[in-house]
């Protein structure tokens, strides 16, 4: 093939690829505006926001039961928040430890990374077995929570590791040489500089935990999280209210992303000038 043709051909291909990525979601979004009597497929009977109202419990009794998302949404948010805090703290501590060379760092690195590799269904099964044997009751804030951290802590660790790799150690040494203790140095110098990284690690952890499902399946106990509620609808017939839910939850995620973007901008944007100063000499 002519090389000059390659570029437009690949561009076209990439376009098709994006259509492949977005297509199902777009179709799902369209179908979420299905009329009350329509099913989860084409054709659209009539355009309406019926299924959104149905989702929020604003419709009269219908043939379709309401999606049980209210409480589970709150649980998922709380779980994601707890997971985020613990993973970011653990991730930052471990990454800080990795700045010192020590023996056995290789095995420890892989032990942590294993957390994001090992299939959720497997650790979920193991945790369920363990809680059975030990007689611990399974709950989203206990057995499921620790597994969520097992999953998100490696991500937070990798993000912080990358941040510390680019970190100029002499700034901390400068603080020490001014008579400032290591603890104060971390609080006043290290932490403010790595904060954008911490924010990214938090975003990672929150999203992963909020959407995590295979690790929760066997370990959440009686009270369901949001993904579990959705999974419950898989086995029965689906209705467009699930699509409406999909659209809303996506919008919620984007809100989160925007908040993150604004925070990032606030903490790095206004100081870009000062940060570039450090890199110019380094």
């Amino acid at each position: 093939m002519d090389v000059r043709m390659l570029r437009p051909a690949l561009a076209l291909y990439t376009g098709a690829f994006l259509a492949f990525l977005y297509g199902p979601m777009i179709v799902l979004a369209i179908l979420s505006f299905q009329g009350p009597n329509g099913g989860p497929q084409f054709p659209i009977q009539e355009w309406s926001t019926y299924w959104y109202r149905h989702l929020l419990g604003l419709t009269e009794t219908s043939r379709v039961s309401q999606l049980p998302v209210g409480d589970s949404l709150l649980r998922s948010l709380a779980l994601a928040f707890m997971t985020t805090v613990v993973s970011v703290v653990l991730g930052t501590m471990s990454a800080e430890a990795f700045r010192t060379r020590f023996r056995g760092s290789g095995p420890v690195f892989y032990l942590v990374i294993l957390g994001m590799m090992v299939p959720g269904v497997l650790v979920g099964l193991g945790m369920a077995l363990l809680s059975n044997v030990l007689g611990i009751e399974r709950a989203w804030w206990g057995t499921a929570f620790v597994l969520h951290v097992v999953y998100t802590y490696p991500f937070a660790f990798l993000v912080m590791l990358a941040i510390f790799n680019r970190f100029d150690r002499s700034v901390e040494e400068a603080s020490l040489s001014l008579g400032v203790s290591p603890a104060q140095t971390f609080r006043r110098v290290t932490f403010p500089i790595i904060f954008p990284g911490v924010l990214s690690a938090a975003l990672f952890s929150f999203t992963l935990s909020y959407d995590e499902f295979s690790r929760t399946l066997f370990t959440a106990g009686r009270d369901l999280t949001l993904p579990l509620s959705i999974y419950g609808t898989f086995s029965v017939e689906i209705y467009p209210n699930l699509f409406a839910f999909g659209v809303l939850t996506t919008l919620f995620s984007f809100t989160l992303l925007v908040i993150y973007g604004l925070l990032m901008k606030r903490f790095t944007g206004t100081r870009a000038g000062r940060f570039s100063g450090q890199e110019a000499v380094a």
């Binding site: 199902p24 179709v27 799902l28 084409f42 689906i238 699930l242 699509f243 999909g246 995620s253």
Partner: peptide
């Protein structure tokens, strides 16, 4: 940024007999 399960389920209205 869409839930994994929603992304899976989104293939149903795409591939179904009336999809």
């Amino acid at each position: 940024w869409t839930s994994f399960l929603i992304r899976v389920i989104a293939w149903r209205p795409m591939l179904g007999t009336e999809g």
